[in-house]
């Protein structure tokens, strides 16, 4: 009896000691493969793109490996370009803000609607949402381009049929209608994630709390903002961060639209600009500098988010 007791005590203390030692090595062993991948394929390239941005890096330099440092000249050229301030930056930032707000607000609205439905309709609707989600960005973009096609698209046809439009309109040439279509595309592709995540969160909010509030005479809006939103703080944090990440990086949705690959300058954003300068003009250094600026912009925004999230976590 006594022996047994000491043994258990021993077993309890001994592993703890070795576990303490293991605890310093083991996490690093577990992390090693992932960190190696991230270091080689994300961090080192980031350093490299910065190094490229300080060079006159063209096709010849890529093939031969020659170096020709030009300091901050690329940056000076970008920052001095009126295109950046009047077109590219507003398009990038403005669109990201609109699409994040649009995606999150719409997705949340859909989640609230779904939460109020019976099982049958909820299943039907969420299956439909899944279908929208599954549509790859490239496919989705072509479908929207087809719907809004000037001569043969269904959108113009219907508007003309209803007498709302006399002649076909080319929606891709105007900066605003161009981005309206991109916005539609991005929201269509992005809201399902928000809706599904927020819905799951909503269903987890205790019913009693809502009923109590209703008894107290709180209206629907008040119930939403004073009970649901605080309960789902973390869910919203995640959803907003991820939407920002995804929406800032919109490339194919712009590049594949008519005029989006560079011929319509008024719709350029940072990503497409960087790509066409690099691979179209063979100015990889200049393109890298644009990419670095885009990265810095995103990192500044993330920094704010990350602080908020980590502060919450460390409590």
């Amino acid at each position: 009896m006594t022996q047994q007791l000491t043994e258990t005590r021993l077993r309890k203390t001994l592993p703890r000691l070795s576990r303490a030692r293991a605890a310093t090595v083991r996490p690093w062993l577990l992390l090693a493969p992932a960190l190696a991948v991230l270091a080689v394929l994300l961090l080192w390239p980031l350093v490299r793109v910065f190094l490229f941005s300080l060079q006159d890096y063209g096709l010849r330099e890529i093939t031969t490996g020659e170096l020709s440092w030009i300091g901050l000249e690329n940056y000076a050229e970008i920052l001095a370009s009126p295109e950046l301030w009047t077109v590219v930056l507003p398009n990038t930032v403005g669109f990201a803000v609109l699409s994040v707000v649009g995606t999150v607000a719409f997705g949340t609205g859909v989640a609230v609607l779904l939460a109020s439905l019976g099982t049958f309709w909820r299943t039907v609707t969420s299956s439909a949402i899944m279908a929208a989600w599954a549509m790859p960005a490239v496919t989705g973009t072509y479908v929207w381009v087809w719907i809004f096609d000037a001569d043969r698209g269904v959108f113009n046809d219907v508007l003309m049929g209803l007498g709302l439009l006399d002649d076909p309109t080319n929606w891709f040439t105007d900066r605003w209608s161009f981005y309206a279509i991109v916005l539609l595309n991005v929201i269509h592709h992005g809201f399902p994630f928000v809706a599904v995540t927020v819905l799951a969160g909503l269903l987890g909010v205790p019913k009693e709390m809502l009923e109590a509030a209703e008894m107290d005479g709180a209206g629907a809006f008040r119930r939403f903002f004073s009970i649901i939103v605080p309960q789902l703080r973390q869910v919203f944090a995640v959803v907003i961060i991820l939407s920002t990440i995804w929406d800032f990086k919109v490339f194919a949705q712009v590049y594949l639209m008519p005029g989006g690959a560079g011929s319509n300058r008024s719709v350029l954003n940072l990503g497409v600009w960087s790509y066409v300068e690099s691979f179209g003009q063979n100015r990889y250094g200049f393109g890298s500098a644009i990419a670095v600026l885009l990265t810095l912009l995103l990192l500044a925004i993330t920094a704010v988010y990350v602080r908020a999230v980590l502060a919450e976590e460390e409590r």
Partner: peptide
């Protein structure tokens, strides 16, 4: 690193 735009990584 999730925030890094793909366009920045394409060249390197």
């Amino acid at each position: 690193v999730q925030m890094v735009p793909l366009e920045a990584l394409v060249i390197p």
